[in-house]
């Protein structure tokens, strides 16, 4: 029986796929602008967050002013999506922010962050300093290409 030949993906295929995934994530992030950055139902605010990808890891940071560090939760929703939640030390009403034509108050932060590349979540590390959360997720390794 002839062995099944599977075409090995070149480095260019991997780069192209990576860029396509990254562009998709960027488009998703941009489309979020058309939604409010708050949710009255869950009384939560969407924090500012940032994703950067290095050769070794994915680094996610989130700006969480007023967050109570003891309530911070970072959970995996899916292989390529993590959820960050935190309760705030204060309750904020629209009125406190100078908005008089809306009603409601906020007491937590909530966001879902898409992971642009596969990671090994079991080796992830997180820190919270000066109101900024930093999560470092090592990238999952694929295969090595031997240089002839």
């Amino acid at each position: 029986m002839r062995p099944i030949m599977r075409r090995r993906r070149s480095i260019f295929d991997i780069m192209r796929e990576y860029m396509e995934e990254f562009e998709r994530a960027a488009e998703e992030a941009l489309s979020a602008f058309e939604q409010p950055s708050w949710d009255l139902e869950t009384q939560s605010l969407q924090p500012l967050f940032n994703i950067s990808v290095t050769a070794e890891e994915v680094v996610i940071t989130a700006d969480l002013p007023y967050a109570d560090p003891k309530t911070l939760k970072i959970e995996s929703v899916d292989e390529d999506l993590i959820e960050i939640t935190a309760k705030m030390r204060v309750k904020l009403r629209f009125e406190d922010l100078g908005v008089s034509h809306r009603e409601g108050e906020f007491s937590s932060f909530h966001c879902r962050v898409p992971l642009p590349v596969p990671v090994d979540a079991s080796r992830a590390k997180a820190s919270f300093k000066r109101g900024i959360l930093e999560v470092r997720l090592p990238r999952r390794r694929g295969y090595k290409i031997k240089v002839e």
């Binding site: 941009l30 602008f33 950055s37 605010l45 924090p47 500012l48 700006d63 002013p65 007023y66 904020l92 922010l97 109101g131």
Partner: peptide, 18 residues
């Protein structure tokens, strides 16, 4: 008032980012 400023500036920062 640093934390309050950061919270109030979230939306303009988000739009400035793009």
């Amino acid at each position: 008032k640093g934390e309050e400023v950061r919270l109030r500036m979230r939306d303009i920062m988000r739009r400035t980012q793009s």
